[in-house]
Design a protein around this nucleic acid. Structure first.
Lengths: 263, 263
DNA sequence: TGCTAGTGGT
DNA sequence: ACCACTAGCA
């Protein structure tokens, strides 16, 4: 028996909007710890890792570990039927091949429940080692989104370089080149507006903007984004989910050979 | 060496949005006077003339006259990457075949530079004689835009007639006819809302709405628009660009024969 | 190509 | 809080 009651249902709606374009089907794993998901994108290049800790739910009952395979497109369709202020409850009976989403509106005069078929998905659950990163950049998520969107109108690959002075996003395309430089800025009215650059070692890595732009679908979830970079390691783009967890996106850098192969 | 610093960068963004649908490639001419452009539209029917006077720039350095051929679509793509509050600087080195657009955001923690290839464009720079017009109508630009958009859902040609009583916009199409009459109105709270009709001689001329509707892309640049009409002369549709210049569109009237040939 | 929904600016 | 514009969909 599984019953997870999330007061701020809009979080789950946003989480699905943040994942569904990247991953079509995935297993949600429920344990006493929380509600989580780990999946590769359809082209097997990027990895998404979601965690919603049990403490974040108003009510969290998970009798035994459960892995529920869902089509994220269908799940998103159903969650779109929840109002942004609705309380969402996820329910599954033991041994059932369905999951139920229940939506209660704030005035408590409407209760909707949507039942969805589960599917069998074989997932390779990758252990993600906790690495020490060369550089970690924290910045307003909308600014990161804007920069990546802007650059993708010029080129298809972004080079992210972190130096002591700041972080530079660069691209090259048919019509020209573009460089956006951000320097650390912690003297802001609102701490969410800060640009914090934690550079242990300078780093410069290339990534396909196509994937990065998919990651920025999570922008509505958090005011800030954290980008962790190390040479030869996948970049981690992390958005916190309120006080209850995170979405992390992993993407391997393009190797120099591949970058040069743009000829 | 060329370096033009425009504090209100949104002006340049709007200027490009106002031109790029009409003209695909054009030379920007820089002199000590200012930054200007003159170009025919791709079908060689309408003419655009832009002037941004040097005094309007915070910093204006133009060592010698320079004509820079640009693809306006690509230039517009790059300017879209500037925020509306950004300061835009246009730079070009002598003899360089590129131009650089630099964007600084208000909080000065982000600097972007975009480099674009210049192109060779042979332009016939037409001298536009300063004519005396039979009638000059000044009105709110959004009202002019709305009228032309409305009329183009009925017909494809607008007849603009100025009499002492006012100005009339008329069209005819398969489904019927439409007439919009504006009378002079200077008793308004806001001078920008005034409709001023300066009629020296009555005039009635026909124009292709397709072009006029392209002209109204400049509506965001100015609250008011000025339409100058004379028989047998191209109409001039002018939008002021802040305190620093103007965009003027010229379009020859349809001759009566051509109007009748719509059968 | 027109509409509608979402977002950003006033 | 409203309106206008843009982008995505039918």
């Amino acid at each position: 028996m599984l019953e997870l009651r999330l007061v701020q249902g809009s979080l789950l709606k946003k989480v699905l909007e943040s994942i569904k374009d990247l991953v079509s089907d995935a297993n949600f794993d429920c344990s006493s710890t929380g509600f989580s998901l780990q999946a590769m994108d359809s082209s097997h290049v990027a990895l998404v890792s979601l965690l919603l800790r049990s403490e974040g739910f108003e009510h969290y009952r998970c009798d035994r570990n459960l892995s529920m395979g869902m089509n994220l497109g269908n799940m998103s369709k159903m969650l779109k039927c929840a109002g942004n202020d609705d309380i969402i409850t996820i329910k599954a009976d033991d041994g059932s091949d369905t999951v139920t989403f229940m939506f209660e509106n704030p005035s408590q005069d409407k209760i909707a429940d949507f039942e969805m078929k589960l599917m069998d998905i074989d997932s390779e659950h990758l252990g993600i080692p906790d690495a020490k990163y060369h550089s970690i950049v924290t910045m307003p998520s909308d600014e990161f989104s804007r920069i990546c969107k802007d650059l993708s109108s010029i080129g298809d690959t972004v080079v992210i370089s972190v130096r002591k002075e700041g972080v530079k996003f660069s691209t090259t395309g048919d019509i020209g080149t573009a460089n956006v430089v951000l320097r650390q800025n912690t003297t802001v009215d609102n701490p969410e507006d800060a640009i914090v650059i934690e550079m242990n070692e300078p780093v410069s890595l290339s990534f396909a903007l196509r994937y990065i732009n998919s990651f920025t679908k999570a922008t509505p979830l958090s005011e800030t984004v954290t980008i962790s970079l190390s040479s030869e390691l996948p970049v981690v783009v992390e958005y916190k989910v309120a006080e209850m967890g995170y979405i992390r996106y992993y993407l391997a850098p393009k190797l120099e050979e591949e970058v040069d192969s743009n000829y």
